[in-house]
Design a binder for these strands. Sequence first.
DNA 1: ATAATACTTGACAAAGTTAGTAGGGTTTTA
DNA 2: TAAAACCCTACTAACTTTGTCAAGTATTAT
Lengths: 142, 142
Amino acid sequence: MLRLSTKGQYGVRAMYEIAKGYPETPVTIKEISEKQDVSVAYLEQILNKLRKAGLIKSIKGPGGGYLLEKKPEEVSIAAILNELEGPVALTSCLDPEEGCVRVDSCVTHLLWKALGEKVEAFLKTITLKNLVSGDLDKMKRK
Amino acid sequence: MLRLSTKGQYGVRAMYEIAKGYPETPVTIKEISEKQDVSVAYLEQILNKLRKAGLIKSIKGPGGGYLLEKKPEEVSIAAILNELEGPVALTSCLDPEEGCVRVDSCVTHLLWKALGEKVEAFLKTITLKNLVSGDLDKMKRK
DNA sequence: ATAATACTTGACAAAGTTAGTAGGGTTTTA
DNA sequence: TAAAACCCTACTAACTTTGTCAAGTATTAT
């Protein structure tokens, strides 16, 4: 249950590669494609979304590529996934765009809401810096 | 992102109805169907799985219905969802049945694993008793 | 200038999953 | 013995995911 889409997974891995080039070395789509084994065409879609969201910027022409728009420690996994998969909404009634019909009659409403918030909170504490520096103790402690 | 299937949602709500009949009042599929607004045929599939998993038992014939097999405080949400949706496996490489090809080369492996474990741990702390008694503080504290 | 590099965009399709319906059982008990 | 209630399998329509493809536009090294 609760499978993450490949778009989200690839997106995080792509951001990891771009973060390795921080602060000044542009990383090309081709490099990301080879290192993370994802097709160039698919990555284009993913990076496009992340660029529009202001997480990365791109430099065109020879020698160009992608760069982080912020510091690695300021880019959380939550931010990346939010752009690629939308907000955590375990049920459709928690989706901001849909809304709940049963609302308070629904005993489980609070449960799913609480779980979603926990997930989001956790993902906010993990940043690209943690990933790049291999600082993974955080995940065990929290 | 991270949408729960309706099977999982309905399953929890059905178990909630059955839990209300604990310890001795059988709850029929029809009652659950009406109270939770889910078709009888769909509920049959769901309850069948839960019965085979030993979470509930059924009594046939007139006056029959479903009963909890254990005490409400011994049935966690995690147990219900595990039967209906399989284990929490945010990525296919964490799925027990598939396995990971990249394993240690995958920087994000640990991340998804940690998140999955957090989700599972949380869902294990919430039981049907919490749901029935409206004891939801737990969700805020933890 | 211009060719090479690299990003940008939108349409589309194959594959898989989900969410349910349908229709036929069997078992139990009043 | 009939009604109530559970049991089981198959199927399918809709949706989502996971990509591919083709045709751009922008930039810069030479």
